[in-house]
């Protein structure tokens, strides 16, 4: 202790400052801790806000709902590719239902092609194949294509809502909104 006093400048050890207000060694570290925590929180918060900056609030993307004609327009076991270009949807009618199938391959998001002769959707990127129902059966796709919410609008036309999708692997194709009974 005496050694310390000798080496430190006299001003800082004058007896007047040795009262309760003096910032002792312990107090100094306490304030350092508080200071560093405050600094980390502020910096962390600042960078969080910067990350949030990357996520836009408003999107300029095409509408997510569209009308797809009358249910009677669809022949059975038929894949309608008319809505593929504009809305990224295939309208499929099998034996007992109509459903709206997403054209986004579940592997890496390419758009598969409907090969009518082979009765399957085939993705050109990595060769995934899907049956007419959307079930994957070949290639690297890990799961079936997604289906979109489908209903009948007041004018009798089919209304497809792309904001809600149904995944087979979660058992959501049982959901009444995922298909139209015919």
């Amino acid at each position: 202790m005496t050694e310390d006093i000798k080496t430190t400048p006299p001003a800082s050890v004058s007896p007047a400052e040795k009262d309760d207000n003096a910032l002792g060694r312990r107090g100094f570290f306490r304030w350092m801790t508080v200071g560093w925590i405050a600094f980390s929180v502020a910096t962390g918060g600042f960078f969080t806000v910067i990350v949030r900056f990357l996520f836009p609030n408003v999107l300029f993307e095409p509408p997510q709902t569209f009308k797809a004609g009358f249910p009677n327009d669809y022949a059975s076991n038929f894949v309608d590719t008319r809505y593929k270009k504009k809305f990224n949807v295939w309208m499929v009618r099998d034996e007992e239902s109509i459903f709206a199938l997403s054209t986004v391959c579940t592997h890496l998001g390419c758009t598969p092609n409907w090969l009518g002769t082979e009765n399957k959707f085939k993705c050109p990127c990595h060769g995934s194949g899907f049956r007419m129902t959307g079930i994957n059966f070949e290639g690297p796709a890990p799961r079936p294509l997604e289906r979109y919410k489908i209903s009948v609008a007041t004018d009798g036309q089919i209304l497809v809502d792309k904001t809600k999708s149904f995944k087979w692997e979660k058992g959501e194709w049982e959901n009444a909104e995922s298909f139209l009974k015919v």
């Binding site: 990350v51 990357l54 996520f55 836009p56 999107l59 300029f60 993307e61």
Partner: peptide
Amino acid sequence: ALLGGRFVGEA
């Protein structure tokens, strides 16, 4: 965040 949207577009 990378695309600035749900698919590859203007943003």
